[in-house]
Every structure is written in C-alpha cells, then in structure tokens.
C-alpha cells in the first residue's frame, strides 16, 4: 500500500435548507493512496458530486474527519480552503467551465493568478502542450470544440502541478472519440504520478481507473480493484 494522501473517517454530509435536512452521505470511511486512479461510481443523486466537493475542498463535511496529507481539514474556513485548493488540487468539470471570450492561454493561467508560483509563462505552455493544444493557444475558448475545451480544462487543472486532480463526469458532455482522448490524458497524468479521482456513472469510463468505489444513497456499497482495466493509450494516439 502506498503512502495515504487522503483519509476519510465517518464522513457525513447533510444539507440544511430552511429547516429541511437532506442527508446525503452517511458515515463514509476510506483511504486513498498517492498516485492512485480512483473512480467513484453510483446512480444519479447518490452523493458522488457531494463527496468530490468535500474531497476537493469546495465544501466541508457536516461531521467526521477528512485528513489530507496528515492534516485535518474538516473545519477549514473559506480562505484556508481556497488556498489548499489552489496548491493541492485541480478540477475538471462536466461543463468545462472555461472563461468565455478569453484565450486558451489566459484560461489555463487562471489558477496561477492566485498562487505564489513564479514562471507563469512556461508553466502555462507546458500544461497546454501536455494536452496537445499548443496550436490553439491564442484561440478564444468559445472557438473550440467540446473535446478541446475539456482538454483546456485539464491543462488548467494541472498547471499548478497539484497532488490530486478531480474530474466530475469529464466525458459527460463529449462524444465517444473526444471522451476517449480526455480519458487518455487522465491516464497519462496518472502514469506520470498524479493522483486522479474520477466521478462517473458510466461503467465503461470507470474501467480506466485502478480502483472503483461504488456509492448508493450515500453509502459505500463496494470498493474494489479494477480487473479488466481499459486503456485509451493504445500506442500512437493524438498526443503523438
């Protein structure tokens, strides 16, 4: 077992809206090692995104502990969460979430604006190169195809060299071919040492991961290694 990067102990999440309490996560326990490629699966509404938001420091648990690299982050405030998000994680969303009317370059640079890291220009170009979009670097985000947009989003997620990359349904809005390309990049990133946490409800997509946690109604129902691992990295792909 590699060194644990994430430890979750009895993690619960309730949403409270005007006295109405919605219980979403019921006491989850698991650990994630550095360099893992984990897929979180489950039907719609089961709490996958909620869990990913907590793991990605976008939200805090109602109770229980979330320990990241040995630090208990369960009770971090807004600004501390923002700082750790900036330093430790990158996000890829289903809906890309690029800044409109803004170039690929500026989009990828965005997380660096809020970090202490120097040498922005090289980092941005490096990240864009690793998703194979250098030829699009000065295009505006709305001039790109869906697949290209998601690759820009991946470049943005890795520009700060984070420990963990979270991807919530990254192929959900893409056709099969573009989806394959995106999964190929995630695999490649995993091969170069990044920890990847992927949320999906497609078995096919989840098969790219090394390990799958299945959630139903806020409970973990299975946590297994993938036996028939699929790969989109069959030799010569678009990454040349």
């Amino acid at each position: 077992m590699p060194e644990n990067i994430i430890q979750v102990k009895d993690l619960k999440k309730d949403y409270v809206n005007e006295e109405v309490v919605t219980k979403v996560l019921y006491g989850l326990n698991f650990e994630i090692g550095a360099g893992e490629f984990l897929a979180i699966m489950g039907p719609s509404g089961s709490g996958k995104s909620t869990l990913m938001h907590i793991l990605g420091f976008l939200d805090t648990p109602t109770s229980g502990q979330y320990i990241f690299k040995g630090r208990d982050v369960s009770n971090f405030d807004d600004d501390k969460l923002a700082k750790i998000r900036n330093e430790e994680v990158g996000f890829v969303f289903q809906t890309f979430n690029l800044l409109p009317k803004t170039t690929v370059y500026e989009n990828v640079k965005l997380p660096l604006l809020y970090s202490n890291l120097g040498d922005h220009d090289n980092k941005v170009k490096e990240a864009i190169k690793s998703v194979g979009l250098l030829h699009r670097i000065n295009n505006l985000s709305n001039q790109l195809s869906g697949g290209e947009r998601q690759r820009v989003a991946i470049a943005r997620a890795l520009v700060t060299s984070p420990s963990v990359i979270f991807a919530d349904e990254p192929t959900g809005n893409l056709d099969t071919k573009s989806g394959q390309a995106v999964m190929g990049i995630l695999e490649e990133l995993n091969n170069t040492g990044h920890t990847i946490i992927l949320v999906t409800h497609e078995q096919y997509t989840a098969q790219h991961a090394i390990r799958i946690i299945k959630i139903i109604d806020g409970h973990i129902v299975s946590d297994e290694k993938v036996i028939n691992r699929k790969s989109s990295l069959n030799g010569d792909n678009f990454l040349k």
Binding site: A82, R85, L110, Y114
Partner: peptide
Amino acid sequence: LRKAVGARRFH
C-alpha cells in the same frame, strides 16, 4: 470558477 481554482475572498 475563480474561487474553485483558488481565489480567496480578498482576490
């Protein structure tokens, strides 16, 4: 989005 990628309130 800015907050998600690490912008603090102050930013």
